[in-house]
């Protein structure tokens, strides 16, 4: 932080990005399933310098009652950033940005979650961004999906997410904060690997039709890499040795 060069080189002549990555490389990603004692399911993700925890409650009774649906369960998602998660202290009250992101994440998860099995109930997904560094919505969505599986909510598929984008006229994978600020395009994507469906898609910036297709393709590749780590996280909790809620480590 601080003392940033006025003219930052986003992509050097060897195709290396400002943080040392290649164009098709994601940042370091670590996912852990579980970790919270009270939530029915939870997950923690570090995606580059993003640090995000997701907790799931439900299916459970709907409060307020009038929101409940007699034919199906409902999904509620709250994406929220801590005051200390960004450069300047953020007001703790939800911003318009957080409300929109909550909505797109919810709609990215809905195709996967089999809510119709639980009429009159709600599944609550709470996402807390402890530290933000560009690409929080993708990291949040990936963590939320693991937390839902950890809660045993029936799902048709996992949802994995990663962004693609464009800097220095080049299509790249997993846009970081600097690239988002100074780059030309940022395209977050969420993807169901088995059902092969894109469930989150946004774009900020200008892409040619060719670049657009390349972006979607490389984005899905990124999602598949995240998916492997989601699988690993769930395997570590459930299939490797001791498992269940008791398997809480001292460190995340």
């Amino acid at each position: 932080m601080g003392g940033r060069e006025a003219t930052m080189v986003l992509l050097d002549e060897n195709g290396i990005r400002c943080d040392g990555r290649k164009v098709d490389e994601t940042r370091r990603v670590m996912i852990k399933a579980g970790g919270l004692k009270n939530a029915d399911g939870s997950a923690y993700i570090e995606f580059g310098d993003n640090k995000i925890v997701a907790g799931v409650f439900g299916p459970r009774d709907v409060h307020p009652k009038h929101m409940s649906d007699t034919d199906t369960g409902i999904l509620r998602v709250r994406y929220h950033m801590e005051p200390f998660s960004v450069g300047e202290r953020k007001n703790p009250a939800p911003s318009r940005r957080e409300i929109e992101i909550s909505k797109v994440i919810k709609e990215a998860l809905e195709p996967a979650v089999m809510l119709e099995m639980f009429p009159r109930t709600v599944v609550d997904v709470f996402i807390e961004v402890l530290q933000a560094d560009g690409g929080t919505r993708c990291a949040a969505l990936s963590a939320a999906s693991v937390a839902l599986a950890d809660a045993g909510i029936p799902m048709r598929d996992m949802v994995a997410a990663c962004a693609a984008g464009k800097v220095a006229d080049t299509v790249i994978l997993d846009v970081n904060n600097e690239e988002d600020q100074a780059g030309q395009a940022d395209m977050p994507m969420g993807y169901m690997p088995t059902l092969e469906k894109i469930t989150l898609l946004q774009l900020d910036g200008i892409l040619t039709p060719e670049e657009y297709e390349k972006c979607v393709e490389i984005g899905i590749k990124g999602c598949m890499q995240v998916y492997e780590l989601q699988k690993k996280a769930l395997s570590e909790k459930y299939f490797d040795g001791e498992n269940g809620k008791g398997g809480r480590g001292q460190k995340r």
């Binding site: 919270l36 939530a39 907790g55 409650f57 929220h80 709470f126």
Partner: peptide, 14 residues
């Protein structure tokens, strides 16, 4: 300040 995040317990409301 102090805040209880809703993921900290089932009874915490937003």
């Amino acid at each position: 300040t102090a805040e209880m995040l809703p993921l900290s317990h089932s009874s915490v409301e937003t």
